[in-house]
Design a binder for these strands. Structure first.
Length: 453
DNA sequence: TTTTGAGTTGTTCGA
DNA sequence: GTCGAACAACTCAAA
């Protein structure tokens, strides 16, 4: 063994791709041969809902196929498993893309320490972002707390060009694998196709329509969004690849899409600087607001039985597909926080359990934005009206009818307010859980009391 | 240091 | 039906 050149380990986490993967290329450079490793961490797998598990399993299967069946999967604590695998194959280094999340960063330090005791280096290269969290700073070296100046500085910072996949004759190391976890797609659910190839195909299809993204992306009844969130979440594609494709485009749609990518980077940056904001109010004074205790209302929201059609459609789309249109995410979130007066964490937890694209930074800070405790100077009066939002963004009611079959026969005039329909509510559809106008006043009154109290 | 302008995504009301 | 104003005050960024 000692007269053989050392090998290297590529530890995949949320970068399940071969293309534009600097850490993987570094591993290929560093070792005579590379062990492609994925560790199924019970602390992440345990809380994941069935859709998330099924998607990850499918993505791992796709990665394994692109590696010619050589992906090694181990389950257990990464601190033990990464060390064990590296020693098994005589590796001198383990390569990763840097994880900037609160859990991942701590875990990586522990892994690094365990590896160090065996004389093995943990080498971090790249991240899931065009610009690594913490790098965008103002003139005094501090991070931004407002999106617009962040986005300007982020764009000015720039990023490297995409890199290609490893050479076709790259030698790989084999080792015993526990195999990809068995996590079938739940009955009655349809999940997006997983893997690097699927991501690229979806992206190509979206690029042909990107010019209309700006005008149509808020319409849940149309298929006008990129649907790249899940692929970005699992690293099946790197945002730098998308930015490179967008760079020559000048349409409003391309600009709007770049801005959405900037939001993703902004929230990762904020979470990196304020890791406690994954659980606590970013604006701490909101902790003092009066909230209601979750009960039957929370369950009605989760199950899509609030009596507000666009809210119910969104919550059912989530349970059926592991995804929800972004405009509808804002509407259902506003309903939970402003109409039911529940803390944002209850909704954020439900989203992370069900969303296949659920990302801690974007999810928690999206919820904090709706709750008013997030990064922007939230206008106190920003309370979504679920009826008028439905009428504006789902004007014919196609989105509602697709996900709420009880309303299939209601025409556009009443689809967002079926209680007004002559002849009354269709069988089986509940009346509105609350009076929105009343709860809006209540939410504003509680905000007022929080400020003066 | 001080000042100034700006801040993703809304709703309601009255003209 | 459309349109503009009002709805608070505050924090942040940059000049």
């Amino acid at each position: 063994m000692s007269d053989q050149p050392p090998t290297a380990v590529m530890w995949f986490r949320r970068d399940l791709r071969l293309g534009d993967n600097p850490a993987l290329l570094a591993a290929c450079d560093a070792g005579a041969a590379v062990l492609p490793l994925f560790v199924l961490d019970p602390r992440l797998w345990g809380p994941a809902g069935p859709a998330r598990r099924a998607y990850l399993a499918a993505s791992l299967a796709a990665l394994d196929m692109s590696l010619g069946g050589r992906l090694v999967v181990r389950s257990g604590d990464p601190v033990r498993e990464v060390h064990r695998a590296a020693v098994e194959v005589g590796a001198a280094s383990v390569h990763v893309a840097e994880d900037f999340g609160p859990y991942g960063a701590t875990r990586d330090r522990a892994v690094e320490s365990a590896l160090g005791d065996a004389g093995i280096a943990l080498r971090r290269l790249g991240s899931p972002y065009a610009v690594a969290p913490g790098r965008v700073v103002n003139r005094t070296g501090r991070g931004y707390q407002v999106f617009t100046p962040f986005a300007r500085a982020w764009h000015g910072h720039g990023w490297r060009d995409p890199v290609g996949p490893p050479a076709p004759d790259q030698p790989w190391v084999s080792a015993p694998s526990e195999g990809i976890p068995d996590a079938p797609v739940p009955d009655a659910m349809t999940l997006p196709a997983a893997g690097e190839q699927a991501a690229r195909e979806r992206w190509s299809a979206f690029l042909t329509d990107v010019a209309s993204y700006d005008a149509d992306r808020d319409r849940p009844d149309l298929d006008a969004t990129s649907r790249m969130s899940v692929h970005l979440k699992w690293g099946e594609v790197h945002p730098r690849t998308l930015l490179a494709d967008l760079a020559p485009l000048r349409s409003d749609g391309a600009t709007a899409y770049r801005t959405e990518l900037a939001w993703r980077e902004f929230y990762a940056d904020v979470l990196h600087r304020r890791p406690e904001s994954a659980r606590e109010y970013l604006r701490r004074e909101f902790g003092a607001m009066e909230y209601d205790e979750p009960g039957g209302d929370l369950v009605a929201w989760q199950e899509g039985r609030t009596g507000f059609p666009v809210v119910d459609a969104g919550m059912r789309q989530l349970r059926a597909t592991g995804w929800m249109h972004n405009r509808v995410r804002m509407i259902v979130a506003s309903f939970l926080v402003k109409d039911l007066h529940l803390e944002w964490q209850h909704g954020a937890r439900h989203f992370l359990r069900w969303l296949v694209d659920g990302d801690l930074a974007s999810n928690q800070h999206g919820w904090q934005w709706v709750a008013g405790s997030g990064t922007d100077a939230s206008p106190y009066f920003r309370v979504f009206n679920p009826t008028t939002q439905g009428q504006r963004f789902d004007p014919r009611g196609d989105y509602v009818r697709r996900w709420v079959p009880e309303l299939a026969d209601v025409d556009a005039d009443y689809i967002h307010e079926p209680v007004l329909r002559p002849g009354g509510l269709p069988n089986g559809y509940p009346p509105p859980l609350v009076d929105h106008a009343e709860e809006r006043r209540e939410a504003l009154a509680r905000l007022e009391r929080m400020k003066s109290g």
